[in-house]
Structure formats: C-alpha cells, structure tokens
Design a protein around this nucleic acid. Sequence first.
DNA 1: CTAAGACCTCAACTAATGTTGAGGTCAAGC
DNA 2: GCTTGACCTCAACATTAGTTGAGGTCTTAG
Lengths: 151, 151
Amino acid sequence: MGQIGGGRHATLTVGDLAARSGVAVSALHFYERKGLLDSERTSGNQRRYRRDALRRVAFIRVSQRVGIPLADIRTALASLPEERTPTKADWARLSRVWREELDERIAALEHLRNDLTGCIGCGCLSLRTCALQNPDDQLGEGGIGPRRWQD
Amino acid sequence: MGQIGGGRHATLTVGDLAARSGVAVSALHFYERKGLLDSERTSGNQRRYRRDALRRVAFIRVSQRVGIPLADIRTALASLPEERTPTKADWARLSRVWREELDERIAALEHLRNDLTGCIGCGCLSLRTCALQNPDDQLGEGGIGPRRWQD
DNA sequence: CTAAGACCTCAACTAATGTTGAGGTCAAGC
DNA sequence: GCTTGACCTCAACATTAGTTGAGGTCTTAG
C-alpha cells in the first residue's frame, strides 16, 4: 500500500491505483505506454501517482464504456491543461463530447434496427433491395478492419 | 466469371461471390476457414458456391453490422436446416434473434447515456458515487478482453 | 494450344487491448 | 538487516477479423 493505509498520503503506488480503480496493474502499465497516463518515479524506479490519476483512470474507463478507442481517449486527455490539476469543469467538458458520440451511435443503431425490422418482415436480405445491404448511413462504412466498439 | 456473364449459371466462383456481395475474396476464404460458409470444389480444387451462399454472406454482413461476433453468427448459421435451401422464413427467424440483441444493446447504451448525462452535470466521475463507475447494468461486465462491437 | 487472369494454400502481418511469465529489484515490517 | 511481497522491464501470447504476399495451379478466351 502507498503508506498509511493505502491512500491518505500524497501519492499512490500502482497497486493502490489498481485496487481503487478496479483496473489491473498490467492495464495501468499499458495505459502509460500508450500515453494515457503518467507517473513520477521513486529513486528506485517505482511509479507514484498523483491523486488525480484516479479520476483520469475513471475517465478512461467511462470513455471505453461509451465505446471510444484508447487512441481517441488519449487525444481527449491531451487537451486537459498541463501543470494544473484538472477541475470538474474540465472533466465535464470532455465527457460532453463523448455524450454526443454516444448519441450518434445510438441513433445509428436505431436506424439499423428499423431497417432490420423491415427486412425481417420480408426475410429477404436481398443484396439489391434490402436497406441493410446498401446502407445510406455511417454504419458499416469504415470497412472490415479492427473493431471500434466495445461493451 | 462463373460462366456466361457471371451468374445466370448454377454456381458462383469465389470472384463472383465477392463481386456480388461486396466482400473481399480473402474474407470469403476466411469465413470458410471459420465454418461460416462452405463450397464445393471443381476437379481442379477451385471453389464453387451455390446461389444461396449469396444470402448467407448477406446474413453474415448484416449480423456483423448488428455487432454480432463471427463465432455467434456461425452458431446461428449452424441452426439452418441442412440439405434444404433455407427459406425466407428461416432467415427471418435468425434475424429476429439479432433484433432482440440489438434492442438490448440500444437499451444498454441509452442507460449509459442517462448516467453519463447525470455525471456530466457534476463532473465527478467519482469511483464511489458515479453511476458510471459502479454499473448496475450489463454493460462493461464482460471485462476488458477483445472487443465485441463493431461499426 | 497457349497465355493471361483467376484461383489455390500457407504463413506472416495488421490493429486494438490487454495478460502472462521470466528474470531481477525495492521497500517495509519484524 | 533480512525476508517477503510489491514492483520493475521486456518479450511473447491471446483474441477478433481479416489482408498481404509468395509460390504455384486452373480455366478459358482467342
């Protein structure tokens, strides 16, 4: 634990942060490698996190639940003010962007549901006539590469 | 082309199927390796598809747009009658299952949106109090492994 | 009949998001 | 001051959904 019961002190060890955020240590290392998180080091090279790392990790997880890839989360986090602990307003600003993303994704899925419902009626799945096969919305235009969504 | 202009004949070559479905040849090979699709072979070992392969591929793509992983699509396809060309009713039955999945996913995302909207108000993202951090719905319970959603 | 284009297999690579393990170091309680 | 648990790095592996390339074969139009 990071001194005196795991957290009243100024910094957190990686184990503390993992325990409090519910994120595995290996994932925290990974976020750091990817530039989403950083830490100071002790003289012995061990990570020490400032307490706002906790909110940072929280933001990462919430963003992932919304379906945002880490690279985009990284970009968003990079827009936080450097050398000033982010305020609640800073976090709220970032989150608002995600809500718009989420709105769009929900709308796209609803559109898809409407199409699918129609196609179930005819059972067609016809390549020429079925709306699902010739999408006029954004869904499915990004090709077949690695997935962007998560659950 | 699969004889006489690419398709009036009984079977399709892999190139025909690719052209008509909009799916790359390499993806069709991949689906076959994964058991989602199969083909007869000519004496020279080239694939020849029955015409209902077209609808099968259509079903695969539609399912992927709904966000279903290939393994699940494979399971669904396995429930189609063997040795009888599937009817429209068969396809409609499968699609209905996906619509239920889609309904659930939309509902989960809407729930998430409500939580996020609330959390934007307070800017908290608190690990203890924010609904997003302590999910009581299905979202986010599957852990962190490979993604299940797509776009 | 032959040449060009389509097809074949197999292995390696991509991308995102991590986990696992090996081999070694730090820090803290007794 | 030593031992034990936590930490370090780096490399390899897992998963999903394919793509790319090498090296070779089939089919078909002319």
